[in-house]
Design a protein around this nucleic acid. Structure first.
Length: 298
DNA sequence: GGGCAGGTGTAAT
DNA sequence: ATTACACCTGCC
């Protein structure tokens, strides 16, 4: 029996949680084939599921967790930068290409995540793939995060990662990113990187200050701006988005990244971040490279 | 075994 | 100014 129900407001829970912006959600089949997601929001262990009535917070029935979840899903108070999802999609659908893409991706929203967690998660994401990123982050949580019960851990506190021993960090399979993670944590810990201050800067200055951190380039900076700092107008370009845009808007011709950035800004304006979510999902579903043909079976 | 995917830093032009 | 390559891990 659901303890709490959040009106979905056009949000598709699975598409949103699986859209590459968060790495700690796991899905299982519940009673009646109901798909249940388990994850962590701040210090709350959360189980959520969606049906025709809305998004249900299954356990535990803590009002605080419900508020955190509502905000996290981007279903809190609306503002000019964060319109209701159906309005966003209606605007994007005026683009002929996105109108078609949206038939597969409608309901994909932008989460409102903790900037610190997103900072570290997307440093880990560089030159990496989603299963590996997820495992590394779970190892970080297990090694440095507060215990929440049932073997689930919160994302590590700043101080814990700032003081982490290199060997323990390496054991999280971060590879060459381990020093990046520790340095970023140190900068946040000692105030050289103030994420709240960055959030208040004009977007280009915010991006530049994030890029001063070793291991953060344009793409990771844009992910932080989009997924945690509320900048729905930025357009992170990874290989998937690049493939999608080149295929759908440039007849499959390779384009320099700066061309794609200008294109996104001019074409999608303040909704570029939402457009990116849909194009990313499209590419992941439809533009995977053909599996390398193995010469012979083993 | 070896090739490949993936974003950034660095060293080369 | 752009370009080439190394970085670490996991998967095929």
């Amino acid at each position: 029996m659901p303890a709490w129900t959040i009106p979905a407001g056009g949000l598709h829970l699975r598409r949103t949680l699986d859209s590459g912006q968060a790495f700690r959600w796991r899905w299982e089949s519940g009673p009646g084939g109901l798909e249940i997601a388990t994850g962590v929001i701040g210090c709350h262990r959360v189980r959520v599921a969606q049906d025709a009535d809305g998004i249900h917070l299954l356990s535990p029935r803590v009002e605080e967790a419900c508020r955190a979840c509502t905000r996290y899903l981007g279903l809190g108070p609306r503002n000019a930068a964060r319109p209701a999802l159906p309005d966003v999609e209606a605007a994007l659908a005026r683009d002929r290409v996105l109108d078609r893409v949206l038939t597969h991706t409608r309901g994909t929203g932008l989460l409102v995540q903790d900037p610190w967690e997103v900072l570290i998660s997307f440093i880990v994401s560089q030159n990496n793939n989603i299963p590996k990123i997820s495992r590394s982050i779970e190892r970080l949580a297990a090694s440095f995060g507060e215990r929440l019960g049932d073997g689930v851990h919160a994302f590590p506190a700043v101080e814990r990662l700032a003081r982490a021993h290199p060997a323990t960090l390496r054991a999280c399979h971060l590879g060459y990113r381990a020093p990046y993670v520790r340095e970023a944590a140190r900068r946040v810990a000692d105030g050289r990187l103030d994420l709240c201050a960055v959030a208040r800067l004009p977007v280009d200055e915010a991006r530049a200050s994030l890029c001063e951190v070793p291991g953060i380039g344009e793409k990771v900076a844009d992910c932080i701006l989009l997924f945690a700092l509320g900048r729905a107008d930025v357009f992170p370009i990874d290989v998937w988005v690049r493939r999608a845009v080149e295929r759908l808007y440039f007849r499959g011709r390779p384009q320099p990244v700066r061309t794609l950035r200008v294109f996104a800004r001019e074409r999608f304006g303040p909704l570029a971040g939402y457009a990116q979510q849909h194009l990313y999902a499209y590419a992941r579903a439809h533009l995977r490279a053909a599996p390398a043909a193995r010469a012979a079976a083993g």
